[in-house]
Design a protein around this nucleic acid. Structure first.
Length: 492
RNA sequence: GGAUCGUUAGCUCAACUGGCAGAGCACCUGACUCUUAAUCAGGGGGUUACAGGUUCGAUUCCUGUACGAUCCA
């Protein structure tokens, strides 16, 4: 049947319901839900076959499946958390109500229910319906009851249908919220203030990425959606707000795949008087808290066992490249580094130093090996424009990236607070921009100005929330943990 | 951006080598007072993603487009 026809049939039925019964399901506006279905499942589990309770339960939910047998009918009934069977009987409801039910209630409809718990001959806990109220009608058919909704495109585009058909999807998003709540709890316990900085701004800084551009009509200027919260949050530390964090969406105008959505969610946190090592402890604390919340530190992600028990391994980028690529960058000249890269077919410019090439080797040979949690430290200064230099070796920075399952989970450093150095690094980035690097960091004069007022020594960190949720909910694609993922419009 | 695969009824899927486009669920009508993928009887439902091409004939073969999935950059 073409969808339009089935839809028209349901609309006709609605009209007849209004005319013949004088009842409009869309005018119902309140129902006292005194008990959830979970409550009933929990409190009446003791009932034996054919045993009846005397209690009256008042609840509400959606009819998922109807099984009618003349003067008795069973419904699979579902609320947000649980499924329970309903039993409608002629003898219990009386002729008028039973006929109304039989004639007008369809799968997909919302019902308010007053009923008595009992267990059927076949052993299923059931509510015998004494009264019901048709609270709302479904005009479109429910997705197939047995196979459900599998088409990924429909599931992402019409998440509501996905959630009706696949209740476990609701679990994933509840876990997502639980993870974010856990992030907040740990940060709040450490006296960190949650703040909101602009999503819309005139400079998109704090990371190396292409921004989305939009336009402000009144001011007649182009504006950008933020790619990070870093520079705003550090301004707040200059302003002596103390420990601050922000959890929110970032926007990067880049490719989309299993791990990247143009809009994603991250945490950024900044602590004055702290360094990147303090951020390591915090990262471990947050991740372990989330794992504990969701049921354990040893997890299985798509068949790979990952142990999130701290402390996580700590290793320098140089060590890891030696380990996995067999080349020791601590004892190598720029020329030799370029030669080694060329041998392996890695793309390098003649001006690249060993510090430019080390991260290329890291990406090529090491990243994919970092399955168990690993803090990578010792990033070259040239790829860390906002990070403080290491005191002993100014060519590297006091920074770490945390890798789990070969994904970059967190990025943190002792923040660069030397305004003179910061200005020079921005100028370096400008130079890269002029050489055609579209992801180079824009020069943010006001940020340098803020640093000139004095930023205390500060530890800062960003953690990818979507990836954390993917890992802890065993989700294969970022689209499974973003409730309405970005989709290309389908021209109709 | 490249490669591969996919798109058939509302949903899940068939249709051999190019020969009348099918099933289950859902929907409509009827029967049925303990079913649970209820059952039984009957009925309606299709521009085979879109646009071209080859052919007597295209869901099937070819080209392009759109959207998606997977892998790679």
């Amino acid at each position: 049947m073409p969808e339009e026809e089935i839809f028209r049939q349901r609309k006709d039925k609605l009209m007849r319901l209004r005319q013949e019964e004088g009842y409009d399901p869309f005018q119902q506006d309140h129902w006292d839900v005194k008990h959830t279905l979970s409550y009933v499942k929990e409190h009446y589990a003791f009932l034996k076959e054919e045993e009846w309770s005397e209690d009256e339960i008042q609840t509400a939910g959606r009819v998922m499946v109807l099984r009618r047998h003349g003067k008795t009918a069973f419904a699979t009934f579902e609320d947000e958390n649980e499924r329970l069977q309903l039993c409608f009987q002629f003898d219990v409801l009386g002729e008028k109500d039973y006929t109304f039910f039989k004639k007008w209630v369809d799968a997909g409809d919302f019902l308010g229910i007053v009923g008595v718990p009992f267990r059927t001959q076949r052993g299923e806990l059931t509510l015998s319906v004494k009264k019901f109220c048709l609270l709302s009608k479904a005009l479109r058919p429910m997705p197939e009851k047995w196979h459900g909704l599998k088409d990924m495109e429909v599931r992402y585009r019409q998440r509501y249908a996905d959630m009706i058909a696949n209740p476990e999807v609701r679990d994933t998003f509840r876990k997502r919220t639980k993870i974010i709540q856990t992030f907040r709890r740990v940060l709040d316990d450490h006296g960190t203030l949650e703040v909101q900085t602009p999503i819309l701004s005139t400079i998109a800084g704090g990371a190396n990425a292409r921004p989305f551009i939009t336009h402000h009509n009144t001011l007649d200027i182009d504006m950008y959606l933020r790619i990070a919260t870093e520079l705003h949050l550090k301004r707040l530390v200059v302003g002596m707000l103390g420990r601050v964090y922000e959890i929110g969406q970032q926007f990067r105008n880049e490719g989309m795949d299993m791990k990247h959505n143009p809009e994603f969610t991250s945490l950024e946190v900044y602590w004055p008087y702290a360094n990147y090592k303090d951020m390591m402890d915090l990262a471990e604390e947050i991740i372990v808290a989330c794992a504990d919340e969701l049921g354990g530190r040893v997890i299985n992600y798509q068949g790979t066992e990952i142990d999130l028990t701290p402390p996580f391994r700590r290793a320098t980028m140089t060590e890891l490249v030696t380990e996995h690529a067999g080349i020791d960058f601590s004892a190598i000249t720029d020329e030799e580094a370029r030669r080694q890269a060329a041998i392996r077919g890695l793309e390098v410019k003649p001006t690249d130093t060993r510090f430019d090439i080390l991260p290329v080797f890291f990406e090529e040979y090491v990243e994919e090996e970092l399955i168990q949690p690993t803090f990578v430290i010792g990033h070259p200064t040239v790829i860390s424009p906002l990070s403080k230099r290491n005191r002993e070796n100014p060519d590297i920075t006091d920074r770490f990236e945390l890798f789990i399952n070969a994904w970059e989970f967190a990025n943190a450093f002792s923040e660069l607070n030397d305004p003179i150095d910061q200005r020079e690094r921005f100028m370096d980035q400008e130079k890269k921009k002029n050489e055609g690097d579209e992801e180079s960091h824009p020069f943010d004069e006001d940020f340098v100005n803020a640093l000139e007022y004095g930023l205390p020594p500060t530890g800062g960190m960003g953690i990818g929330i979507d990836r954390t949720v993917m890992l802890l909910t065993n989700s294969k694609s970022i689209r499974d943990v973003i409730i309405f993922p970005t989709m290309k419009p389908k021209d109709l």
